[in-house]
Design a protein around this nucleic acid. Structure first.
Lengths: 251, 251
DNA sequence: CGCACATTTGATATATGTCAATTTAGGTGG
DNA sequence: CCACCTAAATTGACATATATCAAATGTGCG
């Protein structure tokens, strides 16, 4: 079996937008073929549930487009979003069959889905794949801990600013992956993938507070609201500065 | 080289209290010898800094006794504890030389310390070790996300209750590891490893609020304060119930 | 065009933070 | 061993950020 025939069998993967950023990026052509054999594309409508908490998961997935939220829900109805997954992010908890959180499509989502058992087997057989997943998990852990600071120590205005900064950064990273320009611009324009309600659940606030802080940021000229979900940030540094964040310039 | 001579060279590891719970637990006698060669025991006084944030780490470590706090500090002095390490927990961020958080001894700490480069090499050579570390990282991630719910959605009283419950659970787990009784008791007694100030930084509160909530819990009979740092919990379920937590009994 | 839903805005309540004063505890030296 | 001294913890009075409740406005969809 030669390289070109493998390339054909790897099929769409070779042309996948997110391939080099996702876990599949580390894989050899052979491995990619194996991965593709156990995968298929699947769409989820905005708002639909992808994985139910505390129930045996039936698959792992890579987000191809759209945004997935990981939701922690208490019995009395309180919600906290504990993670956001963007294109190229990995969804699923290895080595434990039961999924710890509700995974829900925040927007329309396209995902590359892997059957659970097959993927775990692949993980055992291909240390490079497990290693790649490990590195992602470490990044997820860092991100979660960074967010703990936001939740525990930032004020409402700073929380909202941090959220906007996060969205801008993630989208910028995606663009950087596609186009070949470093894009060290200080402005950003994007469409919010979350509703006010979701933002509130991500920041540990209420809808009303989120809405108020957005109008404050708008009135201060830190952001422009092109429409409810379309935001223009003229100067990203003002978002960080206004958010009194971790890496604020020393006075 | 026979087993018994290996056993001798593994030395103290064979008798280590936390061995079967720490990453070393998965290792063969051969691997243990290799690990021991690059390790040594080190003590840290309460309050001393173990690893500085944003600086190249020089070692990894296993906590043998005491408690380590991982602190996230902003330039304007706000602090958030993003992780607590108990005996058998692993300290250090693999694959990235710079350490993301301040690691500080909350109590007097004894740790089993590994030279950075040597440990990374060991990691490359022993997939089982990396796998074990991966599983721990996944658990850390789950713990961090669970705590995000506490920080974002729980009230002060519930936060304090959650904290006490966490401490009780961790200590119970340690005891279970030592003695051979399942200890499904509903009461607990323990010494707080953190000052009120640390607890506040862990819960995203102020010292005063922590103190007030502790006296409320005391007045309600949920806890008894034997001394400032010694706590008796007559019924652990009341801690969870009173904390309005995730797994509250449905009314 | 109109309905349902999301978002904004306003008025008020309340939990937690802030500031300040005691009380308690722990550690050191006489 | 006790007394003192400092830091930690508690308690109180008050300020304020955010939640709650309620209404109005805006938006997308059939």
């Amino acid at each position: 079996m030669n390289i070109s025939s493998l390339d054909v069998r790897a099929g769409a993967c070779s042309r996948c937008d997110i391939r080099d950023r996702a876990i599949c990026g580390a894989m050899s052509m052979e491995e990619l073929v194996a991965l593709r054999r156990i995968s298929h594309t699947r769409k989820f409508d905005a708002g639909s549930t992808i994985l139910v908490a505390e129930e045996p998961a039936t698959f792992f997935a890579n987000v191809v487009s759209g945004v997935v939220k990981l939701n922690q829900v208490s019995s009395d109805g309180r919600q906290q979003i504990v993670g956001l997954l963007f294109p190229s992010d990995f969804l699923g908890r290895a080595f434990v069959r039961s999924n710890p959180y509700f995974a829900q499509a925040a927007t329309d989502v396209v995902a590359c889905v892997y059957r659970y058992d097959s993927f775990e087997k692949l993980l055992r057989d291909h240390p490079a794949l497990e290693h790649r997943l490990f590195e992602r998990t470490l990044n997820d852990l860092d991100a979660a801990r960074d967010w703990m600071f936001v939740l525990g120590r930032k004020k409402a205005r700073e929380k909202v600013a941090s959220f906007l900064h996060l969205i801008a950064s993630r989208y910028a990273a995606l663009d950087a992956g596609c186009k070949e320009h470093p894009s060290e611009t200080n402005h950003a324009r994007f469409t919010l993938p979350l509703s006010r309600s979701d933002i509130a659940d991500f920041l540990g606030l209420t809808i009303e507070t989120v809405s108020r802080q957005l109008t404050h940021l708008k009135n201060d000229g830190v952001i422009h609201l092109l429409s409810t979900h379309d935001i223009l940030v003229p100067d990203l540094r003002r978002l960080e500065g206004g958010s009194q964040g971790k890496h604020q310039a020393v006075a």
